[in-house]
Amino acid sequence: MPAAPALRELQRGFADAVLGRGDAGARWVAGAGLAPTARLQVYANAIARTQIDTLRATYPAVLALVGAEFFEAAAARYRLRYPSTRGNLQAFGAAFADFLAALPEAAALAYLPDVARLEWLRQEAALAADAEPIDPAAWLAALDAPTPLQLVLHPSLRLLASAHPLLTIWRYAIAPAGDRLQLDGRGEQVVLWRDGGEVALAATDAASHACIAALASGHDLDAAQAVALAVDADFDLAACLRSLIAQGLVVAFTQTGERPT
């Protein structure tokens, strides 16, 4: 019998064995009628299944687009390339889009990494903090103030601009309608937010997307409007703000220079 390992050494050996990095840890396992490696394999299989199932649940559109066999193989490689770093599995899978972007076998599906990015943002939006929308009356009064406003947008708001018709692809993957996905090749800008309990997704024009992104990064209304007008000279700030307010996505505002209330 080999010398007793320290706990850390034993746990490293166990982890190496179940992650396919060598069976040295098996020498500390009591076989008791089975090969020690067979006992470790029970754990290896269970761990892989849990982590791959987590990716399946987080990335249903990627799964639908590539099929179960491809997805399982990609997920099995992902979990070894980007090991889980938290005890909470909701944190697992953040780098799946980057992994898919570097996967030669997926290169033919150029839009696939963006679909994965969208699904990760969907999960972020679902789990983000709650916040109450602002009172519309206070908002109307603030609009009359002479200094520019800074907005605090809802914690669940996420944005993703894609060179691909991303939302069209995602919707088709989740609930196919018609025989084939018809793509005209134009990119889509997607806004995600939590509406009631569900995550809502909407495509928006490039100028509105630029405006919301500027607001989300802390620019005041004047600056955000300037960014949007540079994208499209016909951009309508009032309409964009009405949409945000109507969806309950503005949760606080300040006059420039103050701290958000």
């Binding site: 034993l10 770093t85 005890g87």
Partner: peptide, 18 residues
């Protein structure tokens, strides 16, 4: 236990009874 060296295995793994 479930993690070593910052890598989480997300399972309920057996301890040695030491």
């Amino acid at each position: 236990w479930g993690a070593v060296g910052g890598v989480h295995l997300n399972d309920l793994l057996p301890l040695p009874f030491t």
